[in-house]
């Protein structure tokens, strides 16, 4: 099936199992949140989907293609890291343009696309800004814009709102929701986000899956916990 398909993933670190037979499916354009306390493997699962770790067992499929052995840089999976990981030696525009540069996209096209992406996240005025001068929320948005540059099939968000204080948390959450909505209208990108905050999960995602310690369930169908969210539903 198209979209993202996580099949029977198992991973152990130093003999200690972290993921044991986890399976998940996302339709194209669907937004799913993984909720659970820290240390239960949510980030690990995300990294496995991104290709930054290899699973001990199981496979990952994107749009019906088995990408389990495909290296990260060819997988077409975008990721927003918990600590942003903006490149300190490049300004905002160059950060956002990075993936385009790697692809060999021409300068004019790059400029256009960067403007478009920064516009999407509401930071058009900060194109030349130095990365170190950004606030937490601004950095997060730049990281998001960067990851969308080549329209990935799957977008991964690792604890996108963690670490922000109350006010900024709420305002960013709202913004993030709108951006994801806008994005969802245009592309068929599946979004998998990971958080420990159930309210955040409810707000941002159409479906929420709870990961519990050790025993992880196969989820074939919608919603386990209540997760109605304002805004558009999946098509």
């Amino acid at each position: 099936m198209s979209g993202l398909n996580i099949v029977a993933i198992a991973k152990a670190f130093a003999g200690r199992p972290v993921l044991d037979d986890v399976s998940l499916s996302l339709e194209p354009g669907e937004r799913l949140a993984l909720v659970g306390p820290s240390g239960c493997g949510k980030s690990t699962l995300l990294r496995i989907v991104a290709g930054l770790e290899s699973p001990d067992r199981g496979r990952i499929e994107i749009d019906d293609i088995d990408v389990t052995d495909v290296p990260t840089h060819r997988r077409g999976v975008g990721m927003v890291f918990q600590d942003d990981q903006l490149f300190p030696h490049l300004d905002v525009a160059d950060n956002v343009a990075f993936a385009l540069r790697v692809r060999g996209v021409g300068r004019a096209e790059r400029t256009r696309r960067v403007a478009e992406l920064l516009g999407l996240v509401g930071l058009g005025h900060l194109a030349e800004a130095h990365v170190g001068q950004l606030s937490g929320g601004e950095a997060k948005r730049v990281a998001l814009a960067r990851s969308l540059a080549i329209a990935p099939r799957v977008l991964l968000l690792d604890e996108p709102l963690t670490g922000l204080d109350r006010e900024r948390h709420d305002s960013l959450m709202t913004e993030l929701g709108s951006i994801l909505d806008a994005m969802g209208r245009e592309t068929g990108t599946s979004v998998l986000l990971v958080t420990h905050d159930p309210a955040e999960a409810d707000f941002l995602a159409g479906r929420v899956v709870r990961l519990t310690d050790r025993r992880d369930r196969e989820v074939a169908n919608p919603v386990i916990e209540g997760s109605d969210e304002p805004g558009d539903r999946q098509p």
Binding site: L52, P71, T72, R74, Q85, A99, S147, A149, I150
Partner: peptide, 9 residues
């Protein structure tokens, strides 16, 4: 890792 998710080998 970020660079790799952005397509850089």
């Amino acid at each position: 890792e970020a660079a790799r998710t952005l397509g850089a080998g």
